[in-house]
């Protein structure tokens, strides 16, 4: 951790790359590390907290093993994401911004995956799926959970 922070602190504007690396490593950015990150970057802990809390991607508590993101932006709305958004909780048995108790994945909204000609789009971990309907979503999630 300290090594990573020192390495990034030496590069210009290295705080975001540093936070990305810590999150990739640990799955989240533990609050107890903020002080040592701040020291490495010659910042206050409050400033580092400010950066971490500004960006949607950064988490300060452990997260689920996998993530399911439903695109809810305009182009997907036009092709049926509102129905997906309304029905997904029933189909998957988990609410938005919560983690599925048994299958350990987190359900989130996302605003645009750049797949707008083939919506509604869903991202499961790093893979994007197009033209997703409630019926196919159940199947996709089941496959992801198994793998």
């Amino acid at each position: 951790m300290a090594q990573s922070a020192a390495k990034h602190a030496a590069s210009q504007g290295g705080l975001l790359p540093c936070l990305h690396e810590i999150q990739a490593e640990l799955g989240y950015i533990p609050n107890e590390h903020l002080e040592s990150i701040a020291t490495a970057f010659s910042l206050s802990t409050a400033e580092v907290h400010g950066v971490v809390s500004f960006y949607h991607d950064f988490r300060t508590s452990p997260s689920a093993r996998q993530s399911i993101q439903i695109c809810c932006a305009e182009a997907c709305q036009a092709s049926g994401s509102r129905e997906l958004e309304a029905g997904v909780a029933d189909v998957l048995g988990v609410e938005f911004d919560e983690t599925h108790p048994a299958d350990n994945y987190r359900l989130e909204r996302v605003y645009c995956l750049g797949n707008c000609a083939c919506g509604p789009s869903v991202r499961i971990n790093d893979e994007v799926y197009g033209r997703v309907e409630l019926s196919s979503l159940r199947q996709l999630v089941a496959e992801a959970v198994q793998s």
């Binding site: 210009q12 504007g13 290295g14 705080l15 975001l16 790359p17 936070l19 990305h20 970057f41 400010g50 950066v51 500004f54 960006y55 949607h56 991607d57 950064f58 605003y111």
Partner: peptide, 23 residues
């Protein structure tokens, strides 16, 4: 350099702050 899920960082001055490692 990777962003971190903030739409406003597409605005050029917000983007510059983000590149500098700030909010």
């Amino acid at each position: 350099r990777m962003g971190a899920g903030s739409y406003i960082c597409g605005e050029e001055t917000a983007l510059l702050n983000s590149l500098e490692g700030k909010r």
